[in-house]
């Protein structure tokens, strides 16, 4: 049996373990949250190193992208460098393939994403592939990176402006402690009511709200049937979105026993299956494997 573990800076309340068979091989996939405790995450990674088949890093990104430029989040890199023997991934490789495919899938197979759909991406630099896919399908996209990560009420409306601002700011901002830019630990369990009042209208102006679930959740106002495109949702998250009035939930990663795991987990599973060093794995490798595994987005009608 192959063991894949996701070590997350997120809340331990979301911990989960499942067993699945893929290509006839049994996988034990588990998620272990460290409640935002960076040192605990490092210690857990060191403990798992060499003892499991692949590790995913959750609740944090190591690599952000804007255009062809890659920015390295220093806290994420420190976590990655704590592991020496076991392959370790942050999900960014898979995001670039799987999440693009999800957007194309929605256009081709559903009526949830017609041309000119108003899309709010709460953050795009952590899933630039998805951002490019929405834009390529003639959606009217608002990139909320400044709004939801820096508290600046400035909606970015083109990928070019996103790249320009990223080029000026990300090399330095990626050095800040990650918790200053993204909700970690207990912050993932509560909503920021003040910012919901201030920024909630951006959600209501959109038909589709896409991106990282913790960011979406933290600033989510009562909705009017909007579609949510995200990943890493638990049964409680689905109930939360239903209660808030979301119309559909689309998760980019497959469901295992009632929940969709993060891209870091699925990428770690794929790395364990591919048996290739991570730097040698190409987007085509992921795409081929996705086809063979018949991974499709999960679409749930909520209201």
């Amino acid at each position: 049996m192959k063991r894949v573990v996701s070590v997350s800076l997120g809340s331990s309340r979301r911990d989960h373990k499942v067993k699945v068979a893929l290509f006839g091989e049994e996988f034990e996939i588990s998620r272990r949250g460290t409640d935002g405790n960076f040192d605990q995450a490092i210690a857990l990674l060191q403990e798992l190193d060499g003892k499991v088949d692949a590790i995913g890093l959750g609740g944090i990104d190591v690599y952000l992208y804007a255009g062809k430029t890659r920015y390295v989040v220093q806290d994420g890199l420190k976590l990655m460098q704590a592991v020496h023997k076991t392959p370790v991934v942050d999900g960014s490789g898979l995001k670039n393939t799987l999440e693009r495919e999800t957007v194309y899938f929605l256009r081709q197979n559903t009526d949830l994403l017609p041309p000119k759909t108003k899309v709010l991406m709460v953050s795009a630099v952590d899933r630039f592939g998805m951002a490019e896919a929405f834009t390529s399908l003639d959606c009217e996209v608002t990139y909320g990176d400044l709004i939801f990560s820096a508290g600046i009420p400035y909606p970015i409306s083109t990928l070019e402006e996103l790249e320009e601002i990223a080029h000026k700011t990300l090399p330095d901002m990626c050095q800040l402690p990650f918790h200053m830019l993204y909700p970690t630990g207990k912050k993932q369990e509560i909503q920021d009511e003040e910012k919901i009042k201030k920024f909630g209208h951006y959600y209501l102006e959109a038909q589709v709200i896409a991106g990282d679930f913790h960011l979406i959740r933290r600033y989510l106002p009562p909705l009017k049937g909007q579609t949510i495109v995200t990943n890493t949702t638990t049964t409680e998250d689905v109930a939360f979105l239903r209660e808030k009035g979301a119309g559909h939930l689309v998760t980019t990663t497959p469901e295992f026993q009632g929940r969709s795991f993060g891209t870091n987990v699925i990428e770690a599973v794929m790395v364990a299956l591919l048996q290739k060093p991570w730097p040698e794995i190409t987007p085509e490798d992921y795409l081929n494997l996705l086809k063979q595994l018949d991974f499709k987005p999960r679409i749930l009608k909520l209201n």
């Binding site: 400044l146 820096a150 508290g151 700011t169 330095d172 901002m173 800040l176 200053m180 830019l181």
Partner: peptide, 9 residues
């Protein structure tokens, strides 16, 4: 974060 951002911009 906002002050840092202003300076970088």
């Amino acid at each position: 974060v906002r002050l840092d951002f202003i300076s970088l911009m």
